[in-house]
């Protein structure tokens, strides 16, 4: 099937098998390997990307289902080389160790903060429950998201 998917603002046209997973389209056809595969069953969340602005687990979506959509991956989050506040938060608060879950964790946090810009600790934990991390014990991840939420609020005030 001929499909067209825009990833981080770049259009990718390809003739694909209907069974091709979106995550393989992103990693193998578009060559963006920041989106990781951890379970192939939509449990771990390592493959989370934004599809038309909403976080989705792309190991459980077919590429053909994403035909015509806009995808944002971890590589597309920084703005002209300037890290996104969520990326800054993970760096500042030691929100990662091995880094394998991190891209998915950051993309899920992005979705969470869009819906709820000022989440409580419980809301962050609930919001990220679809993403697994085996290194950190999660506390620093929660801190990172809170840090990002504060930075984004301060930025919004400045901009407003």
């Amino acid at each position: 099937m001929r499909i067209s998917i825009s990833i981080n603002g770049v259009k990718h046209d390809a003739d694909v098998e209907p069974r091709l997973l979106l995550v393989h389209f992103i990693r193998d056809l578009a060559g963006l390997t920041g989106t990781h595969i951890g379970c192939e069953t939509s449990i771990c969340g390592a493959c989370t990307v934004l599809m038309d602005g909403k976080p989705v687990k792309c190991c459980a979506i077919l590429a053909v289902q994403a035909d015509g959509s806009e995808i944002t991956t971890i590589e597309g989050l920084a703005d002209e080389g300037r890290l996104h506040p969520i990326q800054e938060g993970f760096w500042e608060c030691h929100g990662l160790q091995c880094g394998y879950c991190t891209p998915g964790m950051i993309m899920s946090a992005y979705g969470l903060l869009q819906e709820n810009p000022d989440p409580t600790e419980d809301e962050i934990r609930h919001g990220l429950e679809g993403n697994l991390c085996r290194c950190t014990g999660y506390q620093h991840i929660v801190d990172a998201v809170r840090h990002a939420s504060r930075q984004m609020a301060a930025k919004a005030v400045k901009a407003g």
Binding site: G34, E75, W91, P103
Partner: peptide
């Protein structure tokens, strides 16, 4: 100090085995 490893990991531009082509 901020970790030296992190910039590549938080941007998804590090290389795990499956990322090496």
């Amino acid at each position: 100090v901020r970790r030296t490893e992190d910039p590549r990991l938080i941007q998804g531009i590090g290389h795990y085995v499956d990322d090496i082509k």
